[in-house]
């Protein structure tokens, strides 16, 4: 039982960034823009979030308030960075995969350059204690208390709130309906007066917002508030893409897919604590590969019947009907 509680406590902060970034990818792709730049957007958000934390650390602010401020800056940074993608993809009608790759390559170099010049290191190191030992009151609930309200980060709760908001925007608003129309049949959407370019810009901007926050939450929940130009976000942006495909571009399914991947990763990193697995004496490397191998297997089993947005990746051109 203790092992299960431990695994779930550790899984949730890992699942949150995956969930948010995959939701971001969903908004972008359902509007018709392939967002392979999620990795870069995450790192950009994480960098600015951590930089903010670095500057306001030492003031008398409560660590959780610092986290929220960092999150807002990260979200803003993510939006700005994602605009580079939507400018290339929507206005310049460029190949979306290539411009996304360029954005992914750009930011690690910027972080390394900046941190080497300013801190003489490969990244930013923070010492703020974001960790929540227990949520007063709620942690006393039997079973649920230790599972969800002990030894965690508030990122988990913010993540759930953002998931609910995303579902509402996606399915219950006029904006969500229009966005989805632009990813399926932009010409039809255009013919009834929807501004396809604007919708695609918004889709990418939302993915920047969620991607930036997701990146910062990765720094908080997995890296203890640090960011590093060499390791970056360890392929989480790409894993999030796989989570999105596994979740079939639908918010709730993405949520469960994110939990599944986070569970595998947590398992991989806590082998030593689980007597059964550590007695098997398998090289640690195999566990580290587990999330990536699982992604491949999942894609192999789901790709045949996967339903990607129809107009995804095709630049919209009014004159081509």
């Amino acid at each position: 039982m203790d092992t299960i509680i431990y695994l779930i406590q550790n899984m949730l902060p890992v699942a949150t960034p995956l969930l948010l970034v995959a939701l971001g990818g969903m908004f972008s792709e359902r509007s018709g823009v392939v967002n392979i730049a999620l990795e870069g957007i995450m790192l950009f958000g994480a960098f600015f979030g951590c930089l903010t934390v670095y500057f306001i650390d030492g003031t008398t602010l409560n660590p959780q308030i610092i986290l929220v401020i960092g999150m807002l800056i990260a979200a803003l940074a993510g939006i700005l960075y994602s605009m580079l993608l939507s400018f290339a993809a929507v206005n310049m009608k460029a190949d979306q995969t290539i411009s996304g790759t360029a954005l992914n390559m750009f930011i690690p170099a910027v972080i390394l350059l900046f941190c080497k010049m300013k801190f003489n290191s490969d990244g930013i190191t923070n010492h703020v204690k974001f960790f929540v030992k227990e949520v007063p009151g709620l942690s006393k609930i039997p079973i649920l208390g230790p599972l969800f309200f002990e030894k965690t980060y508030i990122t988990v709760y913010i993540g759930i709130v953002l998931l609910v908001i995303s579902i509402i925007i996606f399915y219950k608003t006029r904006f969500g309906l229009r966005l989805r129309a632009c990813g399926e049949h932009p010409h039809a959407a255009d013919s009834v007066g929807i501004n396809v370019y604007l919708m695609r810009h918004s889709g990418v901007a939302i993915s920047g917002f969620l991607g930036g926050i997701g990146g910062f939450f990765y720094s908080v929940g997995i890296m203890d508030g640090n960011v590093n130009g060499h390791t970056g976000v360890a392929g989480f942006g790409f894993l999030a893409l796989a989570v999105m495909i596994f979740g079939q571009w639908k918010p709730l399914q993405i949520f469960f897919a994110a939990l599944f991947f986070a569970f595998l990763r947590t398992l991989a990193y806590s082998v030593a604590l689980i007597p059964f697995l550590s007695s098997l004496n398998i090289d640690q490397t195999f566990y580290k590969m587990l999330p990536y191998v699982a992604t491949m297997l999942v894609l192999i089993f789901t790709s045949k019947k996967s339903r990607a947005p129809k107009a995804e990746g095709i630049p919209y051109d009014k004159s081509k009907r």
Binding site: A109, V110, L112
Partner: peptide, 19 residues
């Protein structure tokens, strides 16, 4: 100067060569 400047230049070149 730090050698990462070159990585930045290369990334910018790719970004622009996409369109």
């Amino acid at each position: 100067y730090k050698p990462e400047i070159i990585d930045i230049v290369i990334a910018v070149i790719i970004y622009f060569s996409a369109f």
